[in-house]
Write a protein that binds this DNA or RNA. Structure first.
Lengths: 411, 411
DNA sequence: CATCTTATGTAAAGAAAAATACATAACCTA
DNA sequence: TAGGTTATGTATTTTTCTTTACATAAGATG
């Protein structure tokens, strides 16, 4: 009947993974729910939960649930028990952050990014920025749980590499997970930015929605999908590439991808800027377009409204194929609001069968920078606390405890 | 050290679910693999496997795997340990079958079907045909494990009902699972026929493929998807509805659905028959069209080839959105073979980005009747043996054992 | 405030599974 | 056929989890 104990009397975390996983996934918020959900006995749950509480991995909230009798104390992951490092590689800059487990940013940094630098130099820059952020976190933030990267290109998620030739020249087949994993010794994830924005929208705003489509309309056009509650990546990680769906017509414009008639070449930020410039209103970026829309410039309003209809056409196709429950429109051009949405709605409701549109909502994404960063954190945390993997997290947490209890060397 | 025993000395099946599930999913074919995959000790695995073997739920095959030393005996589900009842509701007939767990048909029947009959009369007809098939199975086939139905309409899979108004008038919101479940007391599944054909192609031919698209080109056009290894249904079970994606043009023909320019209205069996008739070659069904193709009738060849291009256009969209690893073309018109395929390939490779087509295979489905029936069986068996549910199966198997050991009453 | 209800903790006994250690099986090779 | 190799079974001990039974906690209710 002896109980395992750590160096200084802390109870052992052995087997506590199932409990931790249930709490993290919010499948069980109270002890009573843990009993039912885990199928373990009260004694075992009590003991393991005690260990998790003692280690600070889980905490009890102030609030309680009234139940008729003694109220239930609510359990949750202790957001301060660890932290994660995330980075989003943009066109000109890399935005990095250290986040607690909420996830919430508690430290961040930005470093310049240039394509020609190639993977190693870039990862080197990311790694040293990460190290600075980790130092800033100090010991109060607990253990580094993992690293998650957002890239502006299709990603082979399992292998942790850029999928095929892409914007990130020279990155094809570079083993990002291996490189960062060797450097930091923690789990590393790499995912496409639009997919991560999709994850953010689902986790943060629509946790109950199992089938959703997120469309990013910015300089380019891309999309991500949650299917059956999981991110849908496709065979090469190229799923959701709606920007290059083509519509044949006589005046099909040339796309950045080299083909004619892509949706992007008609309705993306760069295409609208091109058209505005052509009409004598010099415009460069998607932001410029939005500025003009906000100034109620008629040409801009007209072109954005028209872009909505064109995007609505592809989205209608996607709705027929995917039958999502919710569509979230994000990206810079989403700031045009109804000006963009109305065309999308029009085409979707016109083109799709009633069964697919009956309960379909089309909405704007939360206006928020950094959604890819948060998505990266959600993705990472989801995996760390997954039933099949929690034990690794616990093993690392335990071994850290031991180290921290050693004499504090100042070397 | 006492071992639980059934009435007549059969060992208890308690806890054997995990083992059974691993064998059923082919995650572990030998005892050694079971040890690793289950994480249980050899003693436990041996004991539980012994119980499964004693009950006849699992069997050892003749073949062995050479391993350098004593060869491994291969384990598999005993296909005779139970059977399932499946039915496919077609346009004019219902095809029913009793299948062992291979799954393989060992008895079948066909009953007429007329739409106006409505759900109850139809299910009554199915139920009595099922009862006849079950009687035919006798006791040699073991226990009835479950029932699975294929319907020619979108289905709300979880609720087991027809999704919204459809071809099956009067079926909306009729609780099929409840009705059949009450009658037979076994798990019941209901799914759309194209989805089931998709399941068949995946389980039977492409078990390693996690992302595939199945397109049925027959009288109508429909599709099913496997995404991340699982059937992708969408929010209302309406996913894969590619037949009614529209292409605007001046001569957009009227579709059966009441809209203009649907793919179906241009390239489905009925549309080709319409066009052939219009050209003075009276044709009614998709089969008629195929007959003409097989006779190398130029008009038919031309129209089918053109249909391939039109279908290729939607499939290209679907490829951009879904990024499947394999596309399987089935349905009556697939018998046109390359005549149909070439147009599809042409458009897909022309329209889609290299990343998505680089490793994409486009192939014809196995020529095979009843694929929906087999899909129904696969779907059912997959669920019955799923880790979370096997214990129910075992419980039913155990209780049956007891009953069968009682005196044989002839009442 | 007494009492009801549900939540939660814990000790002790019993059951189940794992670890260990050994024994046996079955094919291969020389 | 002897000996190597891996597969598989089983008795014994040890560990882990459950069951049972009881005790305590804490808000709700009258």
């Amino acid at each position: 009947m002896k109980m395992h104990e750590g160096r200084r009397g802390l109870p052992s975390l052995d087997g506590a993974g199932a409990i931790l996983s249930l709490i993290a996934s919010q499948s069980a918020a109270s002890r009573a729910e843990l009993l039912k959900a885990s199928g373990l006995s009260r004694v075992t749950v009590t003991q393991r939960l005690a260990a998790l509480l003692a280690h600070g991995l889980v905490r009890e909230t102030e609030e309680t649930l009234r139940s008729g009798g003694r109220p239930t104390r609510i359990l949750e992951i202790n957001p301060a028990s660890g932290f994660v490092l995330v980075a989003n590689i943009g066109e000109t800059h890399i935005h990095l952050a250290a986040m607690d487990l909420s996830p919430a940013i508690f430290a961040q940094a930005t470093v310049p990014f240039a394509l020609p630098a190639g993977p190693e130099a870039t990862l080197e820059a990311i790694a040293s920025a990460f190290q600075a952020l980790a130092a800033e976190a100090g010991s109060a933030r607990g253990l580094l749980f993992g690293i998650s990267l957002s890239l502006p290109t299709p990603v082979d998620f399992k292998r942790g590499r850029v999928a095929g030739p892409s914007v990130l020249q020279g990155w094809d087949d570079f083993d990002i997970i291996g490189w960062l994993g060797a450097r930091f010794g923690v789990p590393v994830f790499v995912e496409n930015d639009v997919n991560l924005m999709t994850v953010f929208e689902q986790k943060h705003r629509l946790p109950a929605e199992d089938d959703m489509l997120f469309v990013k309309v910015g300089t380019g056009i891309g999309s991500g999908m949650i299917a059956g509650g999981r991110l849908f990546r496709g065979a090469q990680g190229a799923a959701g590439d709606i920007g290059h769906i083509q519509f044949v017509s006589n005046d099909a414009p040339l796309c950045r991808c080299g083909k004619f008639g892509c949706v992007e070449a008609r309705a993306a930020g760069w295409a609208i800027a091109r058209d505005l410039t052509q009409r004598g209103i010099p415009t460069e970026t998607a932001r410029d377009v939005i500025d003009l829309v906000e100034q109620r410039k008629p040409e801009a309003l007209m072109l954005v409204r028209e872009a909505g209809r064109i995007i609505g056409e592809v989205i209608a196709d996607a709705v027929s194929i995917l039958n999502p429950g919710v569509i979230v429109i994000g990206g810079t051009l989403a700031r045009a609001g109804e000006t963009l949405l109305s065309g999308i709605r029009e085409l979707v409701y016109q083109r799709c069968l009633p069964l697919a549109t009956r309960e379909l909502t089309i909405t704007l994404s939360s206006v928020h920078e950094d959604t890819a960063l948060f998505g990266a954190a959600y993705l990472l945390l989801d995996d760390l606390y997954a039933p099949a993997k929690v034990h690794q997290l616990l093993a690392r947490a335990s071994s850290l405890e031991q180290k921290q209890r050693r004499p504090k060397s100042r070397g």
